[in-house]
């Protein structure tokens, strides 16, 4: 393979990874909430949006590091309030009711932000240590010539991987994770065993919101901070959940990367690029109706 081709492939894979990672962070929350609570949360894009707006304000007033710490916490609290104040009343209602109420919530959040901050996007400057480009050819041995990538986007990929890793650890190796995983399989049985699953499920909603908050802090400078962004992120993220298999964390991660790569590798063919994520969804669902890693009995 010629050097140019290797460079091109490498850059495209990196771009695909970066595109996929934001979707992954939003989709993880979505799939987690769906898997545990059985709620299709269409307000999840709005949580990302709120995260991004909080990040702009806090980063502007106090500094970026404060945003990194405070925004996920704020979103966690918002998530808990949302679950206790509204969502819990919809657990036993049909999915259509849940979709309507969360979709309504998303519209309220979007319009409220538009009302407070205006319809235009708010500049979200990248902190000085994240600015500039990284000369990848100096670090990666098989690259030749001049291959660069914006530093912030590399940071975004890194942060996403850490968040996803941490979530896996939480679910696989902690008691909390064990309860959550068993609750996802059979909530009734877990309850019979004397475990207060409701409280833990509320925490899961908060956790999903927290991840959306982290995505908002690090993704905001890339996706822009404007009221329309929430909805724009929701549709691909929802597709990621469906393609990955409803309720499957690993599936969401794989699907996010697949969609990111699909977008990156079709960039030059705009007529295909604009429909590629839907095309992937159609192909996957035709061959695997439950999604890549969907389990039997979930959302059926």
């Amino acid at each position: 393979m010629s050097g140019d081709l290797i460079n091109a492939l490498f850059l495209q894979i990196l771009t695909g990874l970066q595109l996929g990672m934001i979707y992954a962070m939003i989709a993880l929350g979505l799939t987690l909430i769906f898997g545990t609570l059985g709620v299709v949360n269409f307000a999840h894009g709005a949580l990302y949006l709120i995260g991004a707006y909080c990040a702009v304000i806090i980063a502007g007033k106090l500094g970026f590091l404060y945003a990194v710490i405070l925004v996920p916490l704020i979103l966690f609290v918002i998530g808990i309030i949302l679950e206790r104040g509204l969502i819990q009343y919809f657990y036993d209602r049909p999915h259509t009711d849940q979709i309507l109420v969360t979709f309504g919530l998303a519209i309220v959040a979007e319009e409220a932000l538009k009302w407070i901050f205006g319809a235009n996007n708010i500049p979200y400057p990248v902190p000085s240590w994240g600015q500039g480009i990284v000369m990848l050819h100096e670090y990666v041995p098989f690259l030749s010539g001049f291959v660069v990538f914006p530093k912030w986007r590399l940071i975004l990929i890194l942060v996403s991987l850490v968040v996803i890793g941490a979530l896996f650890f939480l679910l696989q190796f902690t008691r909390f994770g064990l309860v959550i995983r068993s609750g996802m399989r059979d909530a009734e049985m877990v309850r019979f065993l004397g475990i207060n699953i409701t409280r833990r499920f509320a925490a899961v909603f908060g956790l999903g919101a927290l991840i959306a908050g982290i995505a908002g802090v690090f993704g905001g400078p890339i996706t822009q901070v404007s009221p329309a962004v929430g909805m724009k992120m929701l549709v691909p993220s929802f597709l990621v959940v469906v393609i990955g298999g409803m309720g499957s964390v690993a599936g969401a991660l794989i699907a996010a990367v697949v969609l990111g790569m699909a977008l990156s590798f079709t960039a030059e063919y705009s007529s295909i690029q604009q429909i590629i994520i839907y095309l992937v969804a159609v192909v996957v669902l035709l061959t695997r109706p439950r999604g890549l890693m969907g389990k039997k009995g979930v959302f059926e």
Binding site: N7, Q12, T15, S226, V229, E268, Q274
Partner: peptide, 22 residues
């Protein structure tokens, strides 16, 4: 050399800019 049509209202152009770099 080439032209890529991008949807109106795109916020992230990275995939198109990668094609330019390549």
């Amino acid at each position: 050399v080439n032209n890529i049509m991008t949807p109106l209202g795109t916020s992230d152009y990275s995939q198109f800019l990668t094609a330019v770099l390549n």
